[in-house]
Amino acid sequence: MVLSSTGPAPSAAEVLHARYAGRLPVSLEKLAGPEHGVVELPLHVSWSGLRAYDLDRPGVRMGFYRTVLAEGQHEDLVTLLNRDLLLAQWPILRTLISKHVWQVWEEAFPELATAASVAA
C-alpha cells in the first residue's frame, strides 16, 4: 500500500483564505476605483441581478463593494474599489461580507482592522 506524502487535503477555510489572499492588491493605495457615478460590473463579477451601481447612493455603494470583494479578481479590485471609500465603509462592510474575506483583508491591511475597532 502506498501512502501519500503530501499530507491531508486543505480545509475549505484554507482554500477560501488562499483564494481571497491571492487576489489582494499590494497596498490599499493601489485601489484606484471611482468615488462617484454609476459603475457597471463586468459579467465575471456580477453574472446575475444588478450590474450597474450608483456609487453616490450609500446603500447601493455598499452592495457594490460587497460584490466586488467577494467575486472580483485582482484587476477588478484595483480598478473598481477606491481606498478612501473602502476605509470609510469598512466598519459596516465587514459585517456584510464573509468572515473569510474580511479576515484576509484585515490580515493584509491592518488599517482596516483599526478602522473597524475605532468604529466599534
Score class of each variant (00 low, 15 high):
99 K>Y: 14
106 E>F: 10
101 V>S: 01
28 L>T: 03
29 E>V: 14
117 S>C: 06
6 T>Y: 08
84 D>M: 00
24 L>F: 11
43 L>S: 09
89 Q>K: 03
72 G>S: 07
29 E>K: 15
96 L>Y: 02
45 V>F: 07
93 L>E: 02
90 W>M: 01
1 M>V: 12
25 P>R: 09
29 E>G: 14
93 L>M: 05
65 Y>D: 03
104 V>T: 07
65 Y>M: 12
15 V>G: 02
8 P>Q: 11
90 W>N: 01
20 Y>N: 08
6 T>A: 15
18 A>D: 15
68 V>C: 04
8 P>S: 11
79 T>E: 07
24 L>E: 03
116 A>P: 00
35 E>F: 00
86 L>I: 07
76 D>K: 03
89 Q>F: 06
103 Q>G: 05
44 H>W: 11
120 A>I: 02
8 P>M: 14
108 A>S: 09
1 M>K: 12
65 Y>Q: 11
32 A>H: 08
89 Q>G: 03
67 T>F: 01
14 E>L: 08
12 A>E: 15
37 G>C: 04
35 E>Y: 01
14 E>M: 08
101 V>F: 04
64 F>I: 11
70 A>N: 03
98 S>D: 10
7 G>E: 05
6 T>L: 15
66 R>A: 12
80 L>W: 02
8 P>A: 15
17 H>V: 10
64 F>K: 05
19 R>T: 11
30 K>V: 06
30 K>T: 06
13 A>D: 15
